[in-house]
């Protein structure tokens, strides 16, 4: 009995370890190649760590390539999107959480529908709509598109956070002399700060990762986001692996930071927006 229990525990830990190794290995390899000097890259092949590490790829990427621009563009796009979405979604999520109104059912249905159809359907029409407005090849255009795409999911997420706050608190504030909007701003929003942080994180990560619309809407280097820049780089100079992977590691950093921020809310986020990845 005792040995079999011990064996079971060992098997359990080994299985967890296997998952961790599989989850981290690709990222480790990215890091490894990014610090391998070019002259060792082919000769040392599948070695787990180069005999000599270097930061020259990072230096090159930061000092002599367009990646800092891509990085900056992505930061602007993802940051603005996250802020815009969070504001819109807080308002809409509050309406869904606290009011009973005739169109509520239809609004929820509308938002669910936007999560169901293939977004790739919209690539062509959105391009046609934005180009006469001068919003193609512009960060503003991307922010508008990303904001719209992320609002439905973020609304459900914020709604679930608002649902967790007792209605009594607003009622108490309204009796204390607040209007509903003042109660929302002064009482409910401060209590939803963790939810707001989680929404910011989710949306930032989504906007940071978006590829297809950025590829379609952006053509020049000036307005390229990180995914577009990296992909263009890959297809043009697909030999300089060290630099590409250094750039990849740099692209990973903000995403991982936000992941740490939202990790506690993953479950709530995924159940609220089980529709989205």
């Amino acid at each position: 009995m005792r040995t079999s229990k011990l064996l079971l525990t060992v098997a359990h830990r080994l299985a967890i370890l296997a998952y961790i190794v599989v989850a981290l290995f690709p990222l480790f390899w990215l890091l490894k190649v990014s610090v391998t000097p070019n002259d060792l890259l082919y000769s040392e092949g599948v070695r787990m760590w180069p005999s000599r590490a270097t930061f020259e790829h990072y230096e090159f990427v930061i000092a002599h390539s367009a990646f800092p621009t891509f990085f900056k563009n992505s930061l602007i796009v993802a940051g603005s999107t996250a802020i815009a979405v969070t504001i819109l979604a807080s308002l809409a999520g509050y309406a869904l959480s606290r009011f009973n109104f005739r169109a509520k059912y239809w609004i929820v249905a509308l938002m669910l529908i936007t999560q169901m159809f293939p977004l790739v359907m919209l690539v062509a029409p959105i391009f046609k709509m934005l180009s006469p407005l001068g919003l193609t090849n512009s960060l503003t255009g991307l922010v508008i598109v990303y904001t719209a795409f992320n609002v439905p999911f973020a609304t459900f997420l914020m709604q679930s956070f608002f649902d967790g706050i007792p209605k009594d608190l607003e009622e108490a504030a309204m009796i204390d002399g607040a209007t509903q909007f003042v109660a929302f701003r002064q009482i409910i929003l401060p209590l939803t700060l963790p939810g707001i942080a989680a929404t910011l994180g989710f949306v930032f990560t989504a906007a940071w990762s978006e590829l297809l619309f950025a590829l379609m809407l952006i053509s020049g280097n000036d307005a390229a986001t990180f995914p577009v820049g990296l992909l263009t780089f890959v297809s043009k100079f697909s030999v300089d692996f060290g630099q590409m992977m250094a750039a990849g590691i740099l692209a990973l950093i903000p995403a991982c930071l936000f992941f740490l921020l939202i990790q506690r809310y993953l479950v709530q986020g995924l159940t609220a927006g089980a529709v989205k990845g």
Binding site: A23, P26, T205, A255, Q263
Partner: peptide
């Protein structure tokens, strides 16, 4: 946190990585 990390990797980067 470690096993869930791949979820945070941007999809284009996951693709390139693999």
């Amino acid at each position: 946190a470690l096993v869930f990390l791949p979820w945070a990797v941007p999809s284009f980067l996951a693709g390139l990585n693999w």
